[in-house]
Simulated scan of single mutants.
Amino acid sequence: MANRKIGTILRSPVYAFTFEQDYRERGGVPILSLSFRSANGELRQDPKPLAGILPTFFANLLPEGKLREAMGKHHQGRVRQRNDFDLLAVLGADVSGAVQLVPSDGSVLMEKPKAYFSLAGMQMKLSVAKNRREGGGLTLPMDGELGLYIAKFPSATFPGVSENEFANLALAAAIGMDVPHHELVERSDLESIPEELNTHSGGPLLLVRRFDRGADGQRIHIEDFAQVFGVQPSRKYEGAAFHIAATLNNAVSPEAALEFVRRLALAALTGNGDMHLKNWSLIYPGDGDRPSLAPIYDVLSTVPYIPADAMALSLGRERSFRALTAARWKAFANRAGLPETAVLEAVVETVTLVNERWRRLPEREVVPANVRGRIDEHLKVMTPILGTCAQKG
């Protein structure tokens, strides 16, 4: 991190991770992950070596699903099937955040033209740069250049998903949330994309500005809450909302915890069942010695495609959208160590703002009518349920 070696991952015959002594002497700054730190902020002992499993922080840097499969094909011959270490060795120089993983001898062998980035998640997406020439499109970063944008492909399974997320990001911005710049672009804007990294589903791509890359391309560290809690990617749906809220309250600020509450309420209102542990992140600006709540991302309504969907994180021991009455928010507040009144007020404020802004939002008009209608219907159902938070007594 910050061009200084902070540790080593060794595979022989188990995966072992050790911190450098001078990194320990610097107090473990810049922070790699809260998962490596004790409750009082001190760096823990090196994690226990594991057989066949990468330490969870590093496992969560790797792509999943279609993107992982595509990257395996793209680097065929260098990545054995289902081998996390191979994939990390190939893609580790350009992963999310400010960490870089390179061979211990300092050599980085990069074949041209190949893509060497890693983005976590199931959806097919690319880290891209905007071509600097006039009228230039979007290209894969080459020769050590970093992509400043994420281009998310549309889905053949879920029609209108790009427009859905585009409108939901606009809604989050309209109600005052911190949202990265985003736009819809045409597939023709992508230039020279290898076939295995392309898809042929119809519709526009969603282009989102990366908040872990600065204006001049510098790396800004982030970690998702699967990394914070030391949870393997396969268990990202097993989290509880109060755990994130309590961490934000203690490690960041009470205001960050209440912003998390507002984002939870937005997910419930819009029917977003995909806000799992990897879709919430901390960001470490400046010297990287203190976390903040990262901008909101990966927000879309999933109920138009999965009518029986539910919250990805349990809230007051419930996941069903329709169960999220005031009693559940109170139970969540108590477990998170947050004032009940402040939590209920944050929910009510979000309900009010969403109902004021959503139907007047210009961006919603790009959403296919059937998808938009299902979002509207869900919002209509959820408004009185979350509205119980306004009741006295």
Rank of each mutant, 00 (worst) to 15 (best):
M1Q: 14
R4D: 08
K5T: 13
I6Y: 01
I9S: 03
S12W: 03
S12Q: 05
V14E: 11
Y15R: 01
E20V: 06
Q21K: 13
Q21M: 09
D22Y: 06
D22N: 13
Y23G: 08
Y23I: 12
R24C: 06
S38D: 11
L43E: 01
R44S: 11
R44P: 05
P47K: 03
A51G: 07
F57P: 03
L62C: 02
R68I: 02
E69Q: 13
G72A: 04
K73C: 00
K73I: 00
G77L: 02
V79Y: 00
R82H: 10
R82T: 08
A93E: 14
G97A: 04
A98W: 03
Q100S: 11
P103A: 12
V108A: 07
L109K: 09
M110Q: 14
M110L: 14
E111A: 11
P113H: 03
K114M: 06
A115R: 08
Y116L: 00
L119W: 00
L119A: 01
M124Y: 04
K130F: 02
K130V: 13
K130A: 10
E134R: 15
L138M: 11
M142Q: 14
L146R: 13
P154I: 02
F158Y: 15
G160E: 15
S162I: 06
S162Y: 06
E163K: 09
N164K: 07
L169M: 11
G176W: 02
M177D: 04
P180H: 00
R187I: 05
R187D: 02
D189K: 10
E191T: 14
E191A: 11
P194A: 01
P194F: 00
L197W: 01
F211T: 01
D212S: 01
R213C: 08
Q218P: 08
D224G: 04
A226I: 04
A226R: 00
S234M: 11
E238R: 04
F242E: 14
H243I: 10
A245M: 05
N249M: 09
A251Q: 04
S253N: 02
L264V: 01
L266A: 02
A268C: 07
G271R: 07
H276W: 11
L277V: 06
L277C: 07
N279D: 09
P285V: 01
G286D: 06
G286M: 02
G288Y: 02
D289L: 05
R290A: 11
S292L: 12
P295C: 00
P295V: 00
Y297A: 04
V299W: 12
L300R: 12
V303F: 10
V303I: 15
A312W: 07
R322E: 15
R322K: 15
A326D: 13
A327V: 14
R328E: 10
W329M: 07
W329L: 05
K330D: 12
R335S: 12
G337N: 10
T341K: 15
A342T: 13
A342Y: 12
L344C: 15
R357I: 00
R357G: 00
W358Q: 02
L361W: 03
P362T: 01
V366F: 04
V366D: 11
V367F: 03
V367K: 12
V367D: 14
V381L: 15
Q391R: 15
